[in-house]
Design a protein around this nucleic acid. Structure first.
Lengths: 202, 202, 202, 202
DNA sequence: TATGAATGAGCATTCATTCAT
DNA sequence: CATGAATGAATGCTCATTCAT
């Protein structure tokens, strides 16, 4: 008989699995599918490379699993925007600021970027993202943006297109990750909100 | 023996070198440092793989050389903004639109993005970019932005910071290259100009 | 502490050991030395992989042990031929038919084939087989064949050579296991007996 | 320009390719698909492992290519039986003797055996063999056997089944390759012909 | 000098064997 | 003792770089 109860084993398995996914998220987010080495993920997760294969059949499966999870997580993350206080503008601004400031929040977005732009990303991963993340984000944010437009705080563009533009810029900004120039920080949430608010009339 | 004069030889050498750099630009821009294979660059340049090594010691040196050249080229490219017609806003908008529409103009920017975000990019390349390209861009655009701010068309942020933000977003947008969502196109020049124009007062 | 007496323990040990050998026989017979995975043997024996190593130092030792045991078992198996009814021809034919029809009887023969033909089989195993199994089989079958020859049912070849040829063909047939062609079954016992009976005079 | 003419290059390529196939035949025949290491094939062909991949995409493709070629070669080999002198029995006996004596003729047969019995052999290879080799062999030998039966030299079994049995035994014998016992050689052609001739009436 | 063939180091993956629990 | 998790050596395959021709 095993010295650990079935339940304990399951828990440990699950913990280990999460540990790997967390490590893989960091490494894949930073280095992309090709740049990430299984050994790096193993190191980051503090286990041997061989162990990874007890949980995931291949590097590719690990990547796709991560994409799947990230699609879920970010959906949940975005859902929380509605609970923030204030007007639609305030909510979106606060949400944006949080993402731009919190490094760990950025990993998922960076991973998504890599999945969208890297070569040799399995088609399944690209599919997953388009079907389950971006489109869903737009639908999630639709009420907020419509309200923002209704009360005149948001630009009067086509709503879905406005959301898409905003997400694109936010995503790009996160991926960029590094200020182009040491003396000047990355654009902040206020800068980004100009996209949404629309231009000052000149 | 040689049917070519010394001078002709030099010319051929130089042409060959430029040919390689041009090919490398395309391939590195699209696939990044790791994704680009020397064989792809050789194919694109219509040369044998061995020839690359007569001009560049290694893939890495080729990459760094390219970065160095691109830093120069883009400086020249940006300088041309001053010759465009109209107000500072008009000039910047036209410049932005051109870049977003013309694929070949995008290669240098994509390369710079890769250099900034990819792992394993030689520190020297990152240095080069920070020192000689972005800072220089900012100084180049400074008069234009100051004029734009003076006549009230541009937001009243710290000027250098405003330029930095604009360039970051432009750069990110170019690199992104792919719309996040099939149904919605990339943000266009007008969207991007909202960053510069500043927010509509709410 | 132990709820089992020394003797009971010994018994359990011995049972366990037999259980492993039985499982290993099946797996090695079907997949050969290299194709057999220790985990498959463990599964087949309904034990953990680690347990195998309490009884056998290595995969190789397990294999050699098995060969040793199989050499003994088959000797006993063959001895039973003498108890079959009828003439030497009848006995041999019945024996052959049984082997060709009964899958479980085939495991030992398949294992022997693998041991003889696979690369990387420890020299010790090959030795063992030659010394203790085939030679012994021949000696065991010698009286039967001599009697068969005496009464004119068997071909008048050198007796040992005739036995060797018959065993070789039988062994090969068992190992082959798969008909070369879907539409035609494997040669049966009667076909094989032609070797022993000798050719029809033409 | 290349220092070698196009034609010379092609020739060398082709020679190299044949060199690899020859080496692979030996190694795969002896060790099977799994047991054969690409490095062994490279060694046998006197080139580096990396080179193999300039000619064949993968170990599997190399294996399947070999199977395809062997299916052709053996068909040609067998066709030559009709040119041998004497009666059908004489022809078949001479053919059998040649195969059993000439080691190099045995590689293709051994390879076919491995392809038929090893685990993890690509389905395509198994298909190829059943479709293009065994069935074809039977059809090729059909006239010979029918003639042999007509003149009473061959047993009166179903002709195709008789051929199948003969081929199976021949194939098994070749694969076995090693005499079961040092003191007794492998069955020879005459032994094998007993299958075809049918049993001596007892 | 130009070619592309050859090498070999690097990485994904598998599995015998060990060992913490 | 029993388990199965962990390790690491081995092997298929890729690709930067070198070098014979």
């Amino acid at each position: 008989m095993s010295p650990l109860s079935e339940e304990q084993l399951m828990k440990r398995q699950e913990a280990r699995r999460r540990q790997i996914l967390e490590a893989a998220l960091k490494v894949f987010a930073v280095r992309g599918l090709r740049g990430a080495k299984m050994s790096m993920i193993a190191d980051e997760a503090k286990l041997s490379a061989g162990q990874l294969y007890r949980f995931f059949e291949s590097k590719e499966e690990l990547f796709v699993t991560l994409i799947r999870q990230v699609a879920q997580d970010t959906t949940r993350e975005i859902a929380m925007i509605h609970d923030l206080p204030g007007s639609p503008y305030d909510k979106l601004r606060a949400f944006t600021a949080t993402i731009l400031e919190d490094k760990s929040t950025q990993y998922p977005f960076k991973l998504i970027q890599h999945a969208n732009t890297d070569e040799d990303v399995p088609a399944e991963a690209k599919q997953l993202l388009h079907q389950f993340s971006v489109k869903r984000y737009i639908e999630q944010l639709l009420p907020l943006f419509e309200e923002g437009q209704r009360i005149g705080d948001f630009a009067q563009d086509d709503t879905r297109r406005l959301i898409s533009a905003f997400l694109t810029m936010l995503s790009a900004l996160i991926t960029l990750n590094m200020p182009l120039d040491d003396d000047h920080p990355l654009p902040n949430a206020d800068m980004l909100m100009r996209i949404v608010a629309g231009p000052r009339s000149r």
